[in-house]
């Protein structure tokens, strides 16, 4: 079922490219420059979608890991690994874009406030998950333990989302989602651009996960082939 869905996702490449083109047009040409921050405010249209992508990634890792623990099917493990790898890319971009935005606006690259710290923890969760898989010996035990890490890792996501409201520090307040403050919510023009950009990056995220999933499947197929070759060699020797 999952394989069939993934095979059908190829048009996502075209769709995500078209949506990204629209988003870039809106970001750089259509939306007016914000008066207080100037052009640097446009980083928001990149920072928020990649932050969303990194959180979406950990949800997919967590969900797939849970499904793997339940069903013990390889495809869920592959999906978790693919999502973790793409998620760490998005997480790294979230941190980088946030730091570059903070330099002209806060006059510092980094500060130890709650939202930044919890976002950094999410990045480290991804790194820990991937490092564990890279260094632990292959087998069912590695997949099971990695799945447990994946499920636990998602706990950080709601903390990141609510951090700006819970601790009220330097990070701008929530502008989207159920907990967003009505006064600080984006105006109509800014909201349209942010939504378009988020949709475009979501499709890009799905496409990258799909591609990584296929590579992962090829890796598994290669292992199977190597096993078949050595078996046939042993049969030939006998």
């Amino acid at each position: 079922m999952l394989n069939k869905v993934l095979d059908l996702l190829d048009p996502l490449l075209i769709l995500s490219a078209a949506l990204m083109g629209v988003a870039l047009y809106l970001i750089f040409i259509w939306v007016p420059t914000e008066t207080n921050q100037g052009a640097v405010q446009r980083i928001l249209y990149f920072h928020v979608p990649v932050a969303w992508g990194s959180m979406l990634g950990i949800f997919v890792v967590s969900g797939s890991s849970f499904m793997y623990l339940w069903k013990k099917t390889e495809k869920w493990d592959r999906l978790a690994v693919a999502s973790a790898e793409v998620g760490v890319i998005f997480g790294g971009m979230m941190l980088l874009s946030g730091m570059i935005w903070a330099r002209p606006v806060w006059a510092v690259w980094w500060t130890g406030e709650a939202k930044l710290t919890t976002a950094l923890i999410l990045f480290f969760i991804y790194v820990a998950y991937l490092m564990f898989r890279a260094y632990f010996p292959p087998g069912a035990q590695r997949q099971r333990l990695a799945a447990i890490i994946g499920v636990i890792g998602a706990v950080d996501t709601p903390i990141i989302y609510f951090a700006a409201n819970l601790w009220s520090q330097a990070h701008p307040p929530l502008i989207t989602g159920p907990a967003a403050d009505a006064e600080s919510a984006l105006g109509s023009d800014l909201g349209i651009v942010l939504t378009a950009s988020t949709v475009a990056f979501t499709f890009l995220f799905i496409y990258l996960v799909q591609t990584r999933y296929k590579i992962r499947k090829s890796e598994d197929d290669l292992v199977e082939l190597k096993r078949a070759v050595s078996t046939s060699a042993m049969t030939g020797a006998n």
């Binding site: 640097v40 446009r42 874009s97």
Partner: peptide, 15 residues
């Protein structure tokens, strides 16, 4: 400093 368009464009380009 913050309203300086050319400086801000540098940061935007960097991102």
């Amino acid at each position: 400093e913050q309203g300086k368009l050319e400086t801000n464009l540098g940061y935007l380009f960097a991102v």
